[in-house]
Design a protein around this nucleic acid. Sequence first.
DNA 1: ATAAAAAAGTGATAAATGTCATCATTTGAT
DNA 2: ATCAAATGATGACATTTATCACTTTTTTAT
Lengths: 235, 235
Amino acid sequence: MKNIQSVPFSDEVDLLSYEIFSGLTEEELDSLTQSMSCTLHKRGNILYHEGSRINGAYVVIKGILKIYKTGFDGKEQIIRFAKDGDLIGFRSVVSDELACTTSKVVNDAVLCYLPSEVLTSLIKVNPEFAMSLMKLTCRELGESNKFLTDIAQKTVRERLAEVLLLLMDTFDLDEDSTLQISLTREELANMVGTATESVIRLLSEFKSDKLIELNGRKIKLINIPKLIKIGNVYI
Amino acid sequence: MKNIQSVPFSDEVDLLSYEIFSGLTEEELDSLTQSMSCTLHKRGNILYHEGSRINGAYVVIKGILKIYKTGFDGKEQIIRFAKDGDLIGFRSVVSDELACTTSKVVNDAVLCYLPSEVLTSLIKVNPEFAMSLMKLTCRELGESNKFLTDIAQKTVRERLAEVLLLLMDTFDLDEDSTLQISLTREELANMVGTATESVIRLLSEFKSDKLIELNGRKIKLINIPKLIKIGNVYI
DNA sequence: ATAAAAAAGTGATAAATGTCATCATTTGAT
DNA sequence: ATCAAATGATGACATTTATCACTTTTTTAT
């Protein structure tokens, strides 16, 4: 199965348009562009597995990936999704540890690979770049702690409402108020941290309560204020 | 109530002995030492509240602090403990966000305050220092994601066993195999993410199963391999 | 040293959530 | 276009965990 392809004209990818690289000088950007290689990855492709050593990070140019951990009994816990502009695998590169998550393509994706040495040397010569990566990681840490608290304290119902709103923030709604990402019920369950059946039942409940409409994997949010209330989501 | 005191001879605190500062030059260390102020904080003292703006970070010289978030219903979720050599509040300083946790003194502590400007300017001039802080944050992120998965997937029983082992790793056991930190049942519950009563019942159960011995807040671990098995803790 | 407050412990019960079995429906590969 | 595999849906039931009400014990402040 050919599920990885080199992207033609990969040097046409303009890193400057991504916020994370805005601190780099023109020469630094050039050298980074030279050393990176961009590839197209099909749905289902795994970039790296939890526990494996990775020698570089990826920038997402296009598509969606899910980043998850696998529990001791084999169940996935989705940590986050990555979309265009996001950096993947960066944590392991910096901490010099094995990957602590698995990254899997959910929507066909174009990814540019950035070798560790190049990244770390940029961090060492460009403090502004270092600072912006540090900010990124610190924000992510804040979110992770927030979600940790929610999983520990909120009910499944609250968490499901919250996850729907989170998906709205990350992937936006289309003109029809429908979430621009389609996940299986199992994937939703693996975000919420619950059983698939529980998600199915709660989605039906939200539907009969006129909070959402369901059409296969498409979810339309029709009463967002109520979802916010149910999820106890505060800004 | 006088629960904060300036520490005499605060310039005798030798930052060099802390790993995080090992990347600094002698001059940088000197200037950092000049600008810092060390104080003694009594049990119960709060360094900063979730949501407040902080203008610097603290290094823990001595003592123990708990770092926690407060859920929407007022229940605490302990994110981590900080002990000597740890940095507190650093995440908010770097990400330039309001504090996302509250820090409270659990065991009387000596803390040195490092103003934001000094820290950020050091990050900008010393890439090695920047890199070591980034490593720190990335490791913390890895741990947070790990714990997130555990809370989402493990039972309360498994998590309690895991937390006891975590406390062992962080604070060590004394000659008598007793945990060198004493927490209330409620605090344990706020780590595990459960109700206080559940922790009380499970501790009694662990005790009758001869895994631990209890003496007030002192917990002695007498069958660690079994605790590892119960907690499904793999290295 | 003593009283008040906080924490620990216990039982009864309710509520939330997971599990299992089964069948319908959709998806994806050939 | 067809068929196997994956996903979705639903009911019955078991299990886990939270909640409440109360008593005992320990800690803390004066």
